[in-house]
Design a protein around this nucleic acid. Sequence first.
DNA 1: GGCCAAAGTTGAAACGGTCCAACGATGTAC
DNA 2: GTACATCGTTGGACCGTTTCAACTTTGGCC
Lengths: 353, 353
Amino acid sequence: MKQSPKMREPQPSAAPVITIRDVADAAKTSVGTVSNVLNRPSVVAPATRSRVQDAIAELGFVRHAGAALMRGGRARTIGLIVLDIANPFFTELARGAEAAARERDHLVILCNSDEDPAQEQRYFEALAEQRVLGVLVSPVDERSSTIDWMRERGTAVVLLERSRPDYCSVQADDISGGELAADHLLDLGHRHLVYVTGSLAIGQYGNRLAGVRRALSRRGLGDEALEILEYGSTGTMKEGGQAAADILDRQSGATGIVCANDLLALGVVGALARAGVSVPGEFSIVGYDDIELAEQNALPLTTIRQHKHRMGFAAAQLIIDEAENSVQHTHQQIVFQPELIVRMTTAIHESGS
Amino acid sequence: MKQSPKMREPQPSAAPVITIRDVADAAKTSVGTVSNVLNRPSVVAPATRSRVQDAIAELGFVRHAGAALMRGGRARTIGLIVLDIANPFFTELARGAEAAARERDHLVILCNSDEDPAQEQRYFEALAEQRVLGVLVSPVDERSSTIDWMRERGTAVVLLERSRPDYCSVQADDISGGELAADHLLDLGHRHLVYVTGSLAIGQYGNRLAGVRRALSRRGLGDEALEILEYGSTGTMKEGGQAAADILDRQSGATGIVCANDLLALGVVGALARAGVSVPGEFSIVGYDDIELAEQNALPLTTIRQHKHRMGFAAAQLIIDEAENSVQHTHQQIVFQPELIVRMTTAIHESGS
DNA sequence: GGCCAAAGTTGAAACGGTCCAACGATGTAC
DNA sequence: GTACATCGTTGGACCGTTTCAACTTTGGCC
């Protein structure tokens, strides 16, 4: 009955779908010229250019990114796959990547693998299908064949927090970081340490542990001076709370605690405080990452600072470079040095020894 | 056992670019059939189907999402634009959206506007060009014409934390939440409150303030019983620390502090602790959001819980529904009720008022 | 006025998929 | 044996853009 499309219906289904063709007609020119206005405005005569721009604005034309990609191009979009979007380390890194991308007029889309290889794979595939410029990934497993698969299909990949000789990567020197943390405690006189960590399958946690061990052995201390408490996931505050309970249970005589990240450390500190245990009186605690919370905590956390923003920035630059100069591009592994930030959760070990 | 990866030069870009045509040839069938295997596997005979699937695997075919969209379809991707990716409220919400999307085999891509209208606009445009299914947005300004513009161009939009009668939206009842917080303090005997907030241009912070005022006026208290400390941004821990300093400076006699979000509250609590001021002895503090940190803090935070995960879940469901049943879809505004969670930062106000 | 180069514009051929009408093969009913 | 329904497959039109060779216009120079 009411076939008239001009009726007052506020329905959204009136989707007109404006194409470059419509713009060309409205501006009384050709599709080629409109395309030039979009992509190479300088080659179009000013008068024509502004006629086209007016038509675009008037009709509300939105270029179809998918169609634009068909003649071989690559998108102006960078994918970033992180292990845990709730970890401030990654959000700060994402900000850095975004800043670098913005400089070159690119966009970052953030994907959360939640440490699940299947989910990671889904995002890899989706990004490959989108023909993104490249993917920055903090891989669940850096040996995963999916990463090679991506590159074989023509999508550049930069590894975060992991490295492989045949890929660009951006990481921190986690071994030195672990060493820095342990050295600090040893310098303060602690002689029995605990390393609290998320899953050691996460490479950087393993490396930090290696650094701790190196510091111990440099002083002639062996594994008897170290306990390891490993929890299942990426290292959350809740797990830190659990760790504090476990440490109190054990009564093992340990006085220095190195945590694999700040969330764990804050969890430990919080739980100890709630249990009425003095920090740094009875335990000295060092975190890792230097997230904003570390400084703002009621008891500011001694920690190992990572240059998260710079790492993200560098990674995005690498991927843009790799994509734009793929011919003469050489893979590089960038390593950032961590830094000890002493705050209030560590102190000299008074009694004994 | 080593492979010899160095035998041949790492191909600069020997990009083969496998198309559906190549797959069809390899599987000795037609492109139409391959397309059917991809999109409607059930209509293809099992033998053919597996031949095609083998060819896809062997050749490493990746469908070109852009091309697939050209015949009018919509992507299986949902955009989510948040104000501040470092705020756990949004990451938890993102997780909820992701869960709902996964159920329907969609993907969420997260974009961070950082409260900058220009950045928000850039993401809107990029998502429109990608022809995403729809966009969930926590808008910098819900009256922005960009939102209407998106819908006119055919991209569904669901508002988060804001509402407009002509859009789907998911929000919390912030007025009730503010009231809940203030009532709690008033019940405990506090008679002079401070409201610590980020920019009041952020609508929900304004609503929470309105709730606080409502609670006061219900008890016959007016603006003389309320101080407002407004800081510039989205409300960070650092600003909370500043607020604590300002409150101590003023000596105004206030004893109850309502914060517009948990990060502010944790900043206040941390800074007061560092200043040696007892909480909840001298000040009672209520946060807002119930992020994970609130519970895990050394002094667990009394706060107003928001159902972040459910909100994200509902929003993603709405957008999928709107996109799939656009004809008979009616816009709905979903409102979640907040909940008071009493922990350790609030206590009875002892001394006479 | 004739010639030429530069500047601006044009139309059509890709690009890699989806969709669909039409087709062939096979089985079933009478 | 004929008519018909079902199932699986096929090829080509089409989607919206970019690219590029060819074309037209303009203006400078001798």
